[in-house]
């Protein structure tokens, strides 16, 4: 009797083992099927990171895009790029950025038109848990995981020193401001003033301010130059530098009036080559895109982000070194 019981037990055990093996076989086959379909879906839809270009700065945006694309390729992401026509402004930028958030982008890079855009977008992005990296902006508002900017004070210092050297450490200089309040520009100005203060013979005379329009800036420059004798001027924005250059040419003072400006627009570069503008303080927009995307990827992979904005260096170029190998790629990023 006992042995027959044991036989029965054995048989039950065998049956159980068979069932177990069958189940595991099915499971393994299922796994194989699943994993291959996973690969397929990953191949069809790579994760995307959106880059929202700055408004009123097409060339700058395109340079950022180049950098972001280089990084995206390296890290295996697809880049979605939103650009704007010259007549589009903060409203359109915000709308485009929110569309990207809704569209399921893994992360957003944005060069915000103003603080309002950044704050509103940050709220929307953090609600969806989408990392946000601000370019060209050092405000780390809530919901912004990273910021990349240039050291505006240092840039201002560089500009101030360059101008001081151009006018031989003596004379009167003017600063052309923007008619809107921008903390970045204020930092630049602070840097300029700090640098010029080190040269006691240099006097800062009354400054003018204008918007983004070349003609308006020309008028402002005219008024400024009419008001007093000026040896040198610094334009905080590209528009102002172009107006200033126009006025200098009109007065046939091109070359005598030392102009230092910020930016790397083609017109500015052309004026730099021609000797109307003497020095340009330029930032590398390509690096903005590249490092911005790099930060977004590191946030996505769960790494800690630096608590403070990443500061990039600026570079001062003049007519002599603007066609040097290293500077050509910086100033003319696009092969036309």
């Amino acid at each position: 009797m006992r042995s027959s019981n044991r036989q029965q037990e054995c048989r039950v055990l065998w049956r159980r083992l068979t069932v177990l093996l069958l189940i595991s076989a099915l499971w393994i086959m299922g796994m194989a099927g699943c994993s291959s379909s996973e690969i397929d879906s990953a191949r069809l839809e790579p994760r995307t990171i959106a880059l929202i270009a700055p408004v009123h700065a097409e060339e700058q945006g395109d340079a950022m895009r180049l950098g972001a694309e280089a990084a995206a390729k390296e890290y295996g992401y697809q880049l979605q790029y939103a650009s704007f026509k010259p007549n589009e402004d903060a409203g359109e930028q915000l709308a485009a950025a929110l569309r990207m958030v809704e569209g399921g982008a893994s992360a957003i890079l944005i060069d915000p038109a103003n603080e309002g855009v950044l704050e509103e977008l940050a709220a929307a992005a953090s609600a969806r848990n989408v990392p946000l990296v601000a370019l060209n902006d050092e405000r780390l508002v809530k919901g912004v995981q990273g910021a990349i900017t240039v050291d505006h004070v240092e840039a201002g210092r560089q500009a101030g020193e360059a101008l001081a050297k151009l006018i031989g450490d003596a004379g009167s200089v003017a600063i052309m401001r923007s008619d809107r309040t921008d903390p970045d520009l204020e930092l630049r100005e602070a840097g300029i003033r700090e640098a010029l203060a080190r040269h006691p013979s240099i006097r800062i005379v009354e400054s003018a301010s204008c918007g983004n329009l070349r003609d308006a800036c020309w008028n402002a420059a005219k008024g400024m130059l009419d008001a007093s004798h000026i040896d040198g001027a610094i334009a905080l924005e590209s528009g102002a530098s172009l107006g200033l250059a126009d006025e200098a040419k009109r007065r046939s003072e091109a070359g005598r009036l030392k102009i230092v400006a910020f930016g790397s627009q083609v017109e500015q570069l052309s004026l730099l080559q021609d000797g109307v503008i003497h020095q340009l303080v330029v930032q590398n927009d390509f690096s903005f895109g590249y490092i911005g995307l790099e930060q977004a990827v590191s946030v996505l992979s769960g790494k800690e982000t630096p608590g403070s904005p990443t500061m990039l260096e600026t570079k001062v170029v003049n007519a002599d070194n603007m066609f040097w190998m290293n500077n050509q790629k910086l100033l003319f990023p696009f092969v036309q």
Binding site: L66, G67, A70, N284, F286, S287, Y290, I291, N326, K329, L330, P333
Partner: peptide, 9 residues
């Protein structure tokens, strides 16, 4: 990535 190389990145 010529720009990155020039930038030293």
């Amino acid at each position: 990535q010529q720009q990155l190389i020039y930038m030293g990145l």
